[in-house]
Design a protein around this nucleic acid. Sequence first.
DNA 1: CCAATTACTTGACGCTTAGTCAATATTTAA
DNA 2: TTAAATATTGACTAAGCGTCAAGTAATTGG
Lengths: 243, 243
Amino acid sequence: MAASERKKREYAQREDLIIHTARKLLLDVGYLDLNMDRIAEVTEYSKGTIYQHFSCKEEILVAMLSESAEKAGKFLLRGSNLKGKPRERMAAMALGYDLFVCLNPDHFKAKLLVQNESIMRKASPTFQKKLDACNLNNMHIVSGVLRDAVTEGHVKLKKGVTPEEVAFGLWTGALGAYVLMSSEVNLHALGITDPRKAVWENMHALLDGFGWRPLSKELDYEQTRSRILKEVFPKESAQMGML
Amino acid sequence: MAASERKKREYAQREDLIIHTARKLLLDVGYLDLNMDRIAEVTEYSKGTIYQHFSCKEEILVAMLSESAEKAGKFLLRGSNLKGKPRERMAAMALGYDLFVCLNPDHFKAKLLVQNESIMRKASPTFQKKLDACNLNNMHIVSGVLRDAVTEGHVKLKKGVTPEEVAFGLWTGALGAYVLMSSEVNLHALGITDPRKAVWENMHALLDGFGWRPLSKELDYEQTRSRILKEVFPKESAQMGML
DNA sequence: CCAATTACTTGACGCTTAGTCAATATTTAA
DNA sequence: TTAAATATTGACTAAGCGTCAAGTAATTGG
């Protein structure tokens, strides 16, 4: 009966292979030229076998996104474990996510597509739910740190403003920025020479605006930034040439 | 020689018809089921005639987006003309854009797709450039108000922070939020019951964070909000049931 | 008013690709 | 060893994009 165990493992491996191949092809040729025959050819399986794993092309994209969302979650989690004040931990999560996006340029490419309901809808509920769960989990990691800050009295939210709404603000700021960065918009022409730095600055302005202590005039977050890179993401930031 | 004038008009009219038909179909059936035969059928022209106007399906999307980006620009402009302090004018622009997005639900659907380089790339340079110009123009309207605020001394940007980077922050916050709203993400499940309100709150937090006077504790922006709706967008806000 | 020319319109056709499924090969279990 | 179960294949169907030769309508000049 050991065979069925091995079979399962082989199945999972093949699924990984398909996802990774699709990922590579998406980066290389873009969505419109990403086709199933090519995926079959590169994976050295036939189309029929590919369809054994995924019901359609779009489902592969959703699976791809789930996988990288999980990976992103690990970066967030590592950031949240920084020794320090909640706001520093929040900064570490932002930086972690930034590193993740830079190290996984296909993530936002897939995200832009899958965000589109017409594409998401084609995937089977199983895969849809898995992606939803990943996103929810990541949201929880962020709002958890925010809740720590509230209970520890570092930030007092205005009446009617919920922690989720603040997390939403952080989320949308980053999302919008990475959407622009991974799309064809010429940011340089718009006067944005370093969008990643702008995201960092804007996040701190937002947190200052909510009155989340220590404010950026009370603590040198540039120093925190160096500490985060050194303590939490040494390997990744070296890889990105940020140290 | 009056004939050629009429011809031009007819050509432009047909182009509008195609764009509007595609817009309607995109909303009805989604990107994956949006096809050229259907557009031809609904417009009551043949496929060949459609291709006389647009080189491919994706080019129609780009044209569609240009048109609605222009429309959005008008809302921004109207907002920027509010009588009041620059920060109030900025708020009016945000509110105007919000109204625009709500009144044109197809805009972000198309934007999500066209943001994808693989799709944008298929359109001919002429259409690409037109869209770029629209986006640039809209960006200028926003950063213009910001520059007014800087010259009038209402906001003093930290050393190294440019007005464009702040505009970028506003832009990305709104973009990310509308991307989420027009996508399949279940915001309610994430604890976001009123994302549009959250966008408004987060914008003010961001502007407060940059120290843009009057801060939200110095001026009742809820009152400003009512004034904006009444003075600048009476018809639209009535249509949305916001008055 | 008619013929020649030009401009517009058409839809059948070629080609690519998603997704299916009957035939084939391989593995498992008795 | 062999029958049943399972996995794999790739030819095939259907559908849609984009083309283009042939047909239709408008315009112009005589």
